[in-house]
Structures are given as C-alpha cells and as structure tokens.
C-alpha cells in the first residue's frame, strides 16, 4: 500500500500549503495538526532513536510519548502539539552530530 493510501483526508477542499521535512517538500492542509498532516503525507519515521538508531513515528498524538519529536528553528518540539503553517522547515529531532567541535 502506498503511504498516502494509509490515510483518508475527509476535508478534501482544505487549502494546502507547502512545508519541508528533512529537506523534502510536502503539500499539507493549512492549520492541520502537524504530526497528523505529515503522517498522511507519507512521512514514515519522524526521528531516529539515540541508542539503536531505529525510526519512530507519532504514537499517542496527545503530547505524552515524544515519538513525534522534530526540530523547528533549532528547538526540538512535539509535532503533535504544532499546527501546519506555510513555509515550516522541519528536521527530524536532532541527534548527535558535528557541533562547534568534533565529537570526542
């Protein structure tokens, strides 16, 4: 099954805007819940876990589980507590990566 066939958008006439996730553009309904909109747009994994490096996606949709963590403007946030706004540039939640100096 194609990703977009996993979900049915009931409000088909909702105005759509473009957001970026991990560098890729997605057309999603404006004002929709960000986590739900990205899921319905076919985003499979929102982040990779720190220890095992496996993918995670929204689980509770009510702010409790933190599996939908993403990074917006340098701050990690729960996508399920955000709304779609035009031009949002979303990254998967930050992992250990090169910072101001090389990793120890």
């Amino acid at each position: 099954m194609k990703p977009d066939l996993r979900f049915e958008l009931l409000d088909k006439d909702a105005p759509r805007v473009t957001v970026r996730f991990a560098g890729q553009a997605y057309d999603v309904p404006e004002g929709a819940n960000l986590a739900a909109a990205l899921l319905a747009a076919g985003v499979d994994a929102f982040r990779q876990t720190a220890h095992r490096g496996v993918g995670r996606a929204p689980f509770c949709m009510m702010g409790a589980c933190f599996d939908c963590l993403v990074e917006v403007d340098g701050v990690s946030r729960q996508a399920c507590l955000m709304q779609v706004a035009p031009g949002l540039d979303i990254r998967p939640a930050r992992q250990l990566r090169e910072g101001p100096y090389a990793a120890r």
Partner: peptide
C-alpha cells in the same frame, strides 16, 4: 537537558555533557 550535539568539551562546575549528549 535533552541529548544535544557536542557543545561542552570539558566539564565545569556549571555544566558537563555526557557521552549520550
């Protein structure tokens, strides 16, 4: 804090960064 990219090299009396970030 949450796990962060490398920011602090040596521990200080104010903060230290652990291996997981």
């Amino acid at each position: 804090t949450e796990k962060l990219p490398p920011l602090i090299r040596r521990p200080s009396l104010i903060a230290r960064q652990v291996g997981e970030g």
